[in-house]
Amino acid sequence: MDLFPSTSRILRYLRGMNAENVKEWKIELTYRADFIRGMLEPLIFVFPFVLFAMSLMGGRTSSVLEGLTGVSDGITYTIIGYIFMGFLNTAVWGMGFALRKEQWYGTLESIFVAPVPRWVYVLGMALHSTVHQGIILFFQILVVYVLFGVILNVQGVLPVLVFIALMLISLVGLGLMVSGLALIFKEGWIVSEVLYSLITIVTPIAYPLAVLPPLLQKISLTMPTTYAITGIRHFLIDENMGVGLLDSYSRLIIIGVCWIITGLLIFQIVDRKVRREGTLAEY
């Protein structure tokens, strides 16, 4: 691996990432119906969550929830958790399938002969999916504001953005892992599906950490999404943070670095395997 690239190479890698992002938008916008569906679907998916929570609590508020988290409004609690988890989608499906998609198109070899490392494409895709998810997030907040009158603390936006950025470090790592694995496993979507389910189960999206069995609670504390979602809710709707702010930020950074390193390692191993066995052009 090229650990210390020259400045001209770095410039090229950045150009490559941006080009990947732009190309993805262009291709995506040619499928107009799919694009609109992709934007609307997450909005529709919000409702079962919300209605499920309401029916269990027999209304919008719950004193039990308040006792556990400091937030009584279950609807807002769940919705915030749900919509910010959208970034997990971008990692396991967007970034994760960056290279697999090229394999489907038939363009994988064309891009692999270009003088940029393979991770440039995954990072370019990360750029694209993050912007894409940001737009969806904006509309989701708008919709839930109109429908449920969810009000958020506007002054909390800055620390929330920091939480999102730090969570994205881990998610890029996850994206690298999945995109590597998706190249060698024909049924790569199973990898995505499994990781997605595991992470969502142990992340306090619709329920607080306290209701999880002790083992899952321990696992939950190793997930970046746990700190990010709790932190985001803390600043937007005053959820109690189990872990202090600086502690949360530093744990996110540590987990992020670990996931990135794991991602790069898996990616590197898969890349060598694929170049040895010559399975690049197959799909």
Partner: peptide, 21 residues
């Protein structure tokens, strides 16, 4: 299939030009 069929000839080349710096 080594080109992006949904993109124009020019857009294909623009993309690859960026990858080559």
């Amino acid at each position: 299939r080594t080109l992006y069929w949904k993109l124009s000839g020019r857009d294909n080349l623009r993309y690859f030009a960026a990858l080559y710096g």
